[in-house]
Design a protein around this nucleic acid. Structure first.
Lengths: 180, 180
DNA sequence: GGTTTTTAGTTGCAACTTAAAACCCATTGA
DNA sequence: TCAATGGGTTTTAAGTTGCAACTAAAAACC
C-alpha cells in the first residue's frame, strides 16, 4: 500500500535493502519490534510503551503479522487479549536494531542505552557490532570494497587470475575528503 | 518537524533507538545512504539511481546534512554541481545498512545482493553480521539477556555478589512459543 | 443477571507528508 | 548567444498520520 512500497520493490534490482525496507522501513516499525524484544506482547501495552496512535498500531501489527515477522494469537485464559510475538524472522532483526542503537549511542546520545543487552553467561554487555571478514577479522571502511556478483562466480570457476581492475570500487574513497 | 519526531525524541528514555530513528528512520533515508556507499555523490545521480521525487530528495539531503551524516560541497570545476558525501558519522551507518540487507537476503529475497561487500584484502565476501560477547563469541537469541544499567554500576563497585534474580529478562522467552 | 471495566480494535476527520509536474535560475559548453 | 545541465523551489493532488470518539466481545464485580 502506498507508492513508496511499490517503488522500493521495483528498485530491488539485485539488492535486498529496498525489499527489506518495504516492510520494516515503515515508521514505528522498529519501535514496535524493540518493545517486542523487551517483552511486550499485548496491544494496550505497546500503546502505552511507545506512544503510538491506536489505529496506526493496529495497522502496523497487521502488516508485521502479514510479513511473517510477528504472530498474533488470542490468549487462552483471557479471550479479550491477543498475544503478538516475534517469529524467528522477526527475532533475526535484533542485530539490525542493536546496530542502529549502538550507532545512536556513539553519535547521538553519547551514553549507553538502558536496559543493556548482555551475554546471559557472564552478564557482561555485548560488544560493538562490526563488519567482519569471513575469517572474523574486524573490517573498517578502508578494508572494504564492492565486487560484482560475476567476479564471485569466476572465482569459483578459475581459481586465480589477473583480476586487477574489474568492477572494483574502494569504499575508502566514498566518504568526505576533508572536513568531518 | 511532524509529530513522529517529537514523539520519538520524547521516548528517548534511556534508549538511543528512538533518537536515531528521528533522523535515519525517515523514508528514503537508507536508500540515499546506500547510494552514497555505492559511490553516488550528485543530486541528479541520486535522483535517477533511487527513483525518489525531486523535492523529497532535496529535503532529505538537507536533513542528512543538518544531522551531520553527509556534507554538501559545491564542486570546484563545475559550479553547478554539488557533492554530497558521507561524514564519519554517516559511514558508521554501514553496519546497520548491511545488517538489514543481510536480513533481507536471508528472509526476503533468498539470494545474495549485488554488488557484494567484500574484504579488500582477499576479495572474499564479508561474513554474516552477528551479536558477539565482549570476548567475540557469537551470541544467539538464547544467549542474551537484558540487564539494567544499575547492575553494571554495582558490578564495578562490588566485584561479585549473589545477583540471581535482579532486573533480568531472558530474550529466549520473547519469541513465539509454538508456530513459526 | 445486569452493570462496569478491560482489551482490541474501527471510523471520521483535520493536519501533515508525499509524489509528480511545472517552474526557476546560475553555470557551462557548443 | 543560446540550448542544455544541475540543483533546487513551488504548486497541487493524493496518501498517511494522529487524535478522539465509537464498537464489540469477554471478564470482573455485585
Amino acid at each position: 500500500m502506498g507508492k513508496l512500497k511499490e517503488n522500493l520493490a521495483e528498485l530491488g534490482n539485485g539488492c535486498s535493502l529496498p525489499v527489506s525496507l518495504e516492510v520494516i522501513g515503515e515508521r514505528w516499525c522498529f519501535m514496535i519490534l524493540r518493545a517486542s524484544f523487551n517483552g511486550i506482547f499485548h496491544f494496550e501495552d505497546f500503546l502505552s510503551e511507545i506512544g503510538i496512535a491506536r489505529n496506526i498500531l493496529a495497522n502496523r501489527l497487521t502488516r508485521l503479522v502479514e510479513a511473517g515477522i510477528m504472530t498474533r494469537r488470542p490468549c487462552d485464559h483471557d479471550k479479550r487479549k491477543v498475544e503478538y510475538r516475534l517469529t524467528e524472522k522477526g527475532s533475526d532483526l535484533l542485530v539490525s536494531i542493536v546496530a542502529i542503537r549502538q550507532w545512536g549511542e556513539k553519535w547521538e546520545t553519547g551514553v549507553p542505552s538502558n536496559p543493556v543487552l548482555a551475554d546471559a553467561q557472564d552478564r557482561k554487555p555485548i560488544g560493538q557490532i562490526s563488519l567482519r571478514a569471513h575469517d572474523d577479522r574486524v573490517l573498517g571502511m578502508q578494508d572494504l570494497c564492492w565486487i560484482d556478483e560475476s567476479e564471485l562466480r569466476e572465482h569459483d570457476a578459475r581459481a586465480s587470475d589477473d583480476r586487477d581492475q574489474m568492477n572494483v570500487r574502494h569504499l575508502k574513497e566514498i566518504g568526505e575528503t576533508s572536513a568531518a
